[in-house]
């Protein structure tokens, strides 16, 4: 199976190791992984800020770069949701582009969803010893139905003890550009998320979207918590190299 990895702009900039972890997982699932070199951003920040023209420009670019692959996988529910569920509507005025967006949409998957439901990955390359609490990111959870998938994968790691936090499905307050437009409110919401996560006393808070994780990590550190690790699910499943 030849798949294209949509790295996402945040992983490219902030946490390349998540991208490499995703590659290791996909290869372990028997996929041939291609990383289209010209990829940048899915355009969600522009889309959610009301700049439809910029969002459409980037959407077309993504479609051109990725439509030739059998599957497209992203280590982010938010970006996968943007391509899957928003591109067809965003390009709805143009029949040709709408058709191309719709043809790509159903082949785009969030990483854990792809590993569980398409590639049916059985044996994980990584190992992890410790307790984990899982934060369900909003777009993944409510638009793509990502809930069971990461937990099913974590259950395959014998050293992992999953401890569910109260309000795991509540927003962490990131919200993309919301986090820099309303920093105080965003950080206050993140504070509640961190407090909920910390009640589990888990060694690590794990999630599938880097935006949320940067928000949670930034808040934890500001609150003085230096010990709780904040990790992307791909890092946990693929292990450190």
């Amino acid at each position: 199976m030849r798949i294209a990895l949509f790295v996402t702009c945040l992983v490219d900039l902030m946490r390349p190791r998540i991208g490499f972890a995703a590659i290791r997982l996909l290869e372990a699932a028997g996929c041939e992984v291609v990383v289209p070199e010209t990829q940048t951003c899915c355009g969600q920040p522009a889309f959610n800020s009301g700049d439809r023209a910029s969002a459409a420009l980037l959407a077309k670019k993504v479609i051109i770069e990725f439509e030739g692959y059998e599957y497209v996988v992203a280590p982010s529910g938010s970006c996968a949701d943007q391509i899957r569920n928003e591109y067809p509507g965003l390009l709805g005025d143009d029949p040709e582009w709408h058709g191309r967006a719709a043809a790509l949409a159903s082949r785009v998957h969030e990483l854990t969803d792809f590993l569980v439901n398409v590639a049916k990955l059985d044996k994980l390359p990584g190992e992890f010893a410790g307790s984990i609490t899982y934060h369900d990111s909003c777009a993944g959870l409510r638009s793509l139905g990502i809930k069971r998938q990461p937990r099913a994968l974590l259950a395959k790691l014998p050293g992992v003890e999953l401890r569910e936090m109260p309000g795991a499905e509540e927003c962490c307050g990131f919200g993309g550009t919301f986090s820099v437009k309303f920093g105080e409110i965003s950080a206050a919401i993140a504070g509640k998320k961190c407090a909920n996560a910390c009640t589990t006393e888990a060694d690590a808070i794990v999630g599938g979207d880097l935006g949320c994780l940067l928000n949670i990590e930034g808040k934890l550190r500001r609150m003085g918590d230096e010990k709780t690790r904040v990790l992307h699910i791909a890092e946990v499943l693929a292990g450190d190299r």
Binding site: V11, M14, F20, L214, G218, K219, R222
Partner: peptide, 23 residues
């Protein structure tokens, strides 16, 4: 992005982009 750090830290990036490391 001064709003970000009003109530929380901004985690530092790894140091190089995925693109660079992959190439």
């Amino acid at each position: 992005a001064p709003e970000w750090t009003l109530g929380r830290d901004f985690p530092a990036p790894e140091g190089r982009t995925f693109r660079e490391l992959y190439a």
